[in-house]
Amino acid sequence: MHPDDTSAAGDVILHAKGLTKTFRDFTAVDAVDLSVKRGTIHALVGPNGAGKTTLFNLLSGFLKPSGGTITFDGRDITGMQPENIAHLGIARSFQITSLFEKLTALQHLELALGSPTGVGFQFWRSEKRLARFRDRAMDLLDQVGMASLADREVGHFAYGQKRAVELALALALDPQLLLLDEPTAGMGIEDVERTIELVDRISAGRTVVFVDHNMHVVGTLADRVTVLQQGAILVEGSYDEVRNDEKVITAYLGQANV
């Protein structure tokens, strides 16, 4: 997707080995081996309940794996707390839009930008203190096309606009790796096209792993596709390889979009 991307492309930035998550008698993620190359866009697809979101929660630290290891940029991050993983350079978005209705778009970005600085602990200062992040915040909002709405409360935003703010929030952490959980879920066609363009743009110089059900999105964006089924990897390859794979066709039989 990014031929101009030369930043040490080719090596593995994220490596999950034998990653397993069980809930009582139910195995949500089953011995998954996943390697994501630096600078690529990697899609995770699979039917509902295939374990995609659980996998995301494992990678971002929101769930502790029952087994296996996760290595990020040569460093073992298995079982680390989500906030520490975020500081290392993995940012995630959520499947369900999770913004703070009463804050403006700008205030959201200030919150995200303040995170590594420790400014959040200052309970004795005015919140105006956060204004020093304003320029960078506006920059980020501009990147996702939301600069003109910076001072409006996100509660007033349309769905697509909220998703754009979510992306800006993830970018604010200046992550090496972006985990996007269904970036186009619930969107109309127009918003989907915009989001594809947006993800494409912000992926410059970064690695992106995303989950999506929309095969058009996957086909347009992904350099590599991993198909999950019942918590295990079914097939991995380029979009065309995966699309024509017999196992995938069988798994998706009766399901739309493929």
Partner: peptide, 23 residues
């Protein structure tokens, strides 16, 4: 009405989101 208060309100509304931001 401090930066701390901002983070705290965020935690009230959505703790997971705030954690994902690195807090």
């Amino acid at each position: 009405h401090s930066p701390f208060g901002r983070v705290l309100s965020g935690i009230r509304d959505n703790p997971e989101r705030v954690r994902a931001l690195g807090y």
